[in-house]
Each structure stands twice: as structure tokens, then as C-alpha cells.
Design a protein around this nucleic acid. Structure first.
Lengths: 242, 242
DNA sequence: CGAGTTATTGACGAGAGTCAAACAACGTGG
DNA sequence: CCACGTTGTTTGACTCTCGTCAATAACTCG
């Protein structure tokens, strides 16, 4: 669901986090960069989806609210990702900045015209849609059949191995709050917290403040994620933290 | 995730269940019809996805197996639906016939060429992909935050209100087994069974054999499905049993 | 440094899973 | 057409994971 853009990236690291490279990115190049403060919304569920967004910096969460206020985070998106690619009418989610973000905006009309026009962009767009769907299916599996620990490990694995993420001595930044993680994994904040504590006890990770985790044993984390052939090819090319 | 094809359908009821109408269907017209016995596989997870399929008759389930044999059904597909639209490399699921089926097959290569060629088919295809993703997100919400009863009611609602389904005096055919339903809803067979029994006690549905349910109180079912504005527009145009 | 927020930990309970037995539906063959 | 075996479903008793509620601790920011 996220990192969608990234498999196609050339990802030349430009010192800072590299963002360019995805051919769809070129569409957003000419748009002005907007700044979104952490916690602020980018768009609202139910509103007409008149724009798509590309994140050039920061992390964004997409969520839906059901009935009595239960919140579901359907995806996290990172620098380089496009938000709203699969919308046809209204926004099906509210997008909010997890951290301070920089984004670019493109009208859906223009986006569609450009896609229609360009023989090059079209396959890139279709490919993106396909990967979004595939990612959503991965998340279905997680929510359907994995226990709390497996969910958390899957999440951390994806964060740790996502393109554009480089772990310096295993240090992983986790920008989202426990509540965000819980709502993404279909758990409660307490269960997320306990699961992290258990991993810490077993010396698989070492928490460092709220938003940093030192990954001591990535291989073990992969095993615990409950994926069939953990940490082999699959974990990599299936990619997406989504 | 499923019924994807159907929103675009004109769905003229031809006495039997109508299947034609979706513009993508035209692609499969020239292919020979194959017969697949109930329980038999149409394609396997991990194999190269060389074909797409259209179901012309019957019901199909898509599933993935995780680690120690846990099965997740990611979607059910019905007559008119296209299976495999969002694949790029390998099949990400095994497709099996729930009932005896008739299907048509089209090579992915040819499909892609035709899509590229036709100004008409392309938006239809993109639209299909978008709806697949949107449907997957609906299922994320279900698996993430709904309890057993809500899951079951959501499922029955979608079955009952899906395009191409006409309830005669509330009689709903449920072709899939309890195990299928359980694996689709992220529950066990026992929990599904108990949930149905409870709905029956409350006279909301009346079971009739294994594969029939008389829906006595559709409105109540909608309320219990835990969707915000149940049974109003949303339930309908969001559609998809998926 | 201190108020407010976010995270951790513990005690407890509920909802769904597990195991096992009884039961109903279906298909086959006599 | 009915007996019988097979398979799928229902129901009950029990267990366990995760959710709930509540208290404490850690971080953040003015």
C-alpha cells in the first residue's frame, strides 16, 4: 500500500533522502511544494478527490473512521510515494502528516490527461495500481491470520527493509506513535507496547526513546514475522511497508 | 476485491444470470469456454501469471497460504468478474472453483496489448484496478476493527446486495462452505457457525440447508454490519462482496 | 522545571480459538 | 428409495490471547 512508488525508483542517494527517479514523479515536478505540519490533514475522507499528492519529505498516514469512532490506518506513505492514485470519486481516507511534511499537489484532471497522453507514464501508473492492490492483500493476510507479535515484526521488518531506508548500526526510526501503529496493525496501543517490550526482553530490538529502535537481530525479526520464506527474496521484492 | 467488474455492468438480466456488458468482457469473448469442477484450481500462487481469467459462470475463491498452513481467502469472484487483473509477475493467490465454473482465458500479453491499443478499454481497466484496491481497503477495515458478528453481517449484506443477485423472498444462496467464509472473514468455522446461529435465534435470518439463508430483516443486518451509514447509498455503490 | 501528553505495566475480563462430541446433509450403492 | 458412510456443520466446555481499565512512568515542550 505504500512504498508503492519505490520499487521503480532508481534511488540515487543524494545525501538527504532521495525522492526522484520514479517516472510518475516527473508529473509533480512543476507543482509548488507545500508544507504540512505534523498532525495536520492533507485531505478528508468523503471530500471530492480533486487532487493527488506526492510526498517529497516526511511520513503520512491514511485512515478511515468506522461507526463509533474506531480508526483504521490503511497505509503509511513515505517520501516519493503518491497519495490518491487509486481514487475515482471521493477520498476514501483522510490523509494526515505523521511528521512535518513537504508535499506537491496535482489535479486529478491533469494527472489523468498526462497519463493518457504518455506511453511511458501509463505503464508506470498501472504498475503502481497493481502494487497498491498487492500490498493491500499482504495487509489482509496480516490482519486476517497473524497474532500480535507477528504483526509487529512484519511491520518493523517492512519499515527496516523498505527502499530508501538505511539502518546505521541497526538503528531504525519509527516516526509514528504507538496509537498509529496499533490502528495500522488492528491492535490496541497496550498490545503494541507489550509486544515491543517482549521483543526487547528477548534482545531482538532495543528501544531508544519513543521513536527509535535498534534492530539487534533482523533475521530473528523476519522469522517472527510469520512470512513463509522470511527474509529471503520475498521479503525484499514484495516490499512495501504498506 | 470482487464484483469489481460489476459496477460497470449494464446487467441486462437475460433470464439466466447476466454476465456481459462490461467492456473488458469483450476481450474474453473470443476465447473458448473452459469448465472447472468445484474444488479444482484455476491457477496457483507462485506460478507465472501468464493468463487472466473471466468467470462466466460460478463462484471462485482466491486464497493465500501463510507459514504453517493458515489460509486466507482474499476474495470471492462471481460471474462477470475478471481474475488476475492486478498481477504483474507471478500469481499472488491460488484461485479455486467454489462451485462448478465456466471460465474464459486470455494471455496477459494479449490483454496488455489490447488495453494499450484501445482508448476505451484502458479507462475500464484502470477503473477496475482502482475498485479492486478500494475493495481491499474495505476488507482491511473489516479485518482490523470488526467483531465476528459485524464481519458476518457485512459479508451477508454484500452477498445479498451485490449486482446480479436477486433475492426471491429474501432467499440468499451462499455457495461457499463455512470454512471458506471463516477464512475470508478471518474467523474460525465454529465462530462463523455460532454467529449464524445467533442471527437465526434473533430471527434476522433463517438458515435453510447449508447453502441457503432466508434474509428476514435486511435492514437489521445492515445495522449490525457496523458500517457507518448502513444500507444507505454507501452500502450500494461501494458495493462488492469482495 | 513542570504540565501535558504519550507510553508502559499490571490486574482483570471478554470474545474468539481449540478440542471434542453430536448432529445434519449429501452421495453412493444396494 | 432407503441404509449407510462420508463430509460438513453445529454445539458445548474449556483455554488463551488480546482488549479494557487504571495506575505509574517516561518523554516533550513551553
Amino acid at each position: 500500500m505504500l512504498m508503492q512508488g519505490q520499487q521503480a525508483f532508481e534511488n540515487v542517494d543524494l545525501g538527504v533522502k532521495a525522492v526522484q527517479g520514479n517516472s510518475l514523479s516527473s508529473l509533480f515536478q512543476m507543482s509548488a511544494t507545500e508544507t504540512v505540519e505534523a498532525g495536520k490533514a492533507i485531505c478528508w475522507e468523503g471530500d471530492a478527490a480533486r487532487h493527488l499528492f506526492q510526498i517529497t519529505e516526511g511520513v503520512v498516514r491514511l485512515h478511515r473512521i468506522i461507526g463509533d469512532g474506531r480508526r483504521v490506518i490503511t497505509a503509511f506513505h513515505f517520501a516519493g510515494d503518491v497519495v490518491g492514485s487509486f481514487l475515482q470519486g471521493d477520498f476514501l481516507f483522510t490523509a494526515e502528516a505523521v511528521t512535518d511534511c513537504k508535499i506537491r499537489r496535482l489535479s486529478r484532471k491533469q494527472f489523468q490527461e498526462e497519463i493518457e497522453r504518455s506511453e511511458l507514464l501509463r505503464p508506470a501508473y498501472i504498475s503502481l495500481l497493481c502494487r497498491e492492490t498487492a500490498s493491500a492483500h499482504d495487509q489482509l493476510v496480516l490482519l486476517s491470520r497473524k497474532n500480535a507479535e507477528e504483526r509487529l515484526c512484519t511491520f518493523l521488518m517492512k519499515l527496516a527493509t523498505r527502499d530508501g531506508e538505511t539502518l546505521h548500526q541497526g538503528l531504525l526510526e519509527v516516526p509514528m506513535s504507538r496509537q498509529d501503529i496499533a490502528d495500522y496493525l488492528g491492535l490496541t496501543i497496550e498490545t503494541v507496547s507489550r509486544s515491543i517490550s517482549k521483543l526487547a526482553q528477548r534482545k531482538i530490538v532495543i528501544p531508544d526513546g519513543r521513536h527509535n529502535l535498534r534492530i539487534v537481530n533482523l533475521a530473528r525479526l523476519a522469522q517472527l514475522s510469520g512470512n513463509v520464506d522470511d527474509f529471503s527474496d520475498r521479503t525484499c521484492h514484495r516490499g512495501s511497508v504498506h
